[in-house]
Amino acid sequence: MTEYKLVVVGAGGVGKSALTIQLIQNHFVDEYDPTIEDSYRKQVVIDGETCLLDILDTAGQEEYSAMRDQYMRTGEGFLCVFAINNTKSFEDIHHYREQIKRVKDSEDVPMVLVGNKCDLPSRTVDTKQAQDLARSYGIPFIETSAKTRQGVDDAFYTLVREIRKHKEKMSKDGKKKKKKSKTKCVIM
């Protein structure tokens, strides 16, 4: 069974824990209790493949930012979460993405942009803004509501699919490099 290491990042209060708990335990946590770091595991079937999701729910508070490099190193894919009623959390996505790329030393890291709290009427981040940002990053965008469960499975499952595509691409690139290195030079 394939294991996928997913990391949920975003500013404090955007609903990272609520999304994760909704996926794992099928219930909505409405009281806000700032996370330092929590880890969850769940076995699911995605596109006919049974897999184990190892999900790291991270601290959004700035005082825990020193811990970010460590979990970013171990993560295979990242859910970059903002709240649709919090423009600052949307603007912060850029910083999370840049930090992930720096730590992973790669421009090509599996990510999904997630606009959470889409059940709320007080939207300050337009869907088109988020779609445009995701398009500019070359990553999928999904709106979710941890409260109603809308888009929750889709967000995590899409990230797994992005990781699969990335692994497939990397193995193809690896095979191309191996083929090239088999060419021999004969000096007579």
Rank of each mutant, 00 (worst) to 15 (best):
H166M: 11
R73A: 14
R135S: 09
Q43R: 12
V112F: 04
R73S: 13
C80I: 14
E76A: 07
Q22N: 08
Q129V: 07
V14Y: 15
F78Q: 01
K88Q: 12
Q25M: 14
S17W: 00
V8H: 03
D119K: 05
E63D: 12
E98Q: 07
K182Q: 15
K117E: 14
Q61I: 06
I55L: 05
V160W: 05
G75E: 04
K128M: 06
F28K: 00
R164N: 15
H95F: 15
C80P: 01
R97Y: 11
L53Y: 11
R102N: 09
N116D: 14
F141R: 03
Y64R: 10
D47A: 07
S17T: 03
F90D: 11
E162Q: 10
Q150C: 09
Y4R: 12
T58C: 07
Y157E: 08
I139M: 04
A66S: 10
A134P: 09
V8Y: 01
A146S: 08
T74N: 09
G12S: 08
K42V: 10
R73E: 13
F156C: 05
I21H: 04
C118H: 11
E62A: 05
E107Q: 04
Q150P: 13
Q61M: 07
K180F: 15
Q150F: 03
E62H: 07
D54T: 01
Y40R: 00
K101M: 09
T124I: 06
D54V: 01
F141C: 11
E107V: 08
I84R: 09
V160A: 04
A18V: 05
R123Y: 08
P121V: 08
T124D: 09
Y32C: 02
S106N: 11
V160N: 07
G115T: 11
D30Y: 05
G115C: 12
R123S: 11
K172T: 15
I139G: 10
M67G: 09
Q25G: 15
Y137R: 05
G77K: 12
D33T: 02
F90R: 15
G174C: 09
S122Y: 07
K175H: 11
G115N: 06
K182T: 01
G60P: 03
V81N: 04
T127N: 08
N26S: 13
G15H: 01
T35H: 00
D132K: 09
H95Y: 07
V44A: 09
R102W: 15
S17P: 01
S145T: 08
K117F: 14
A130R: 09
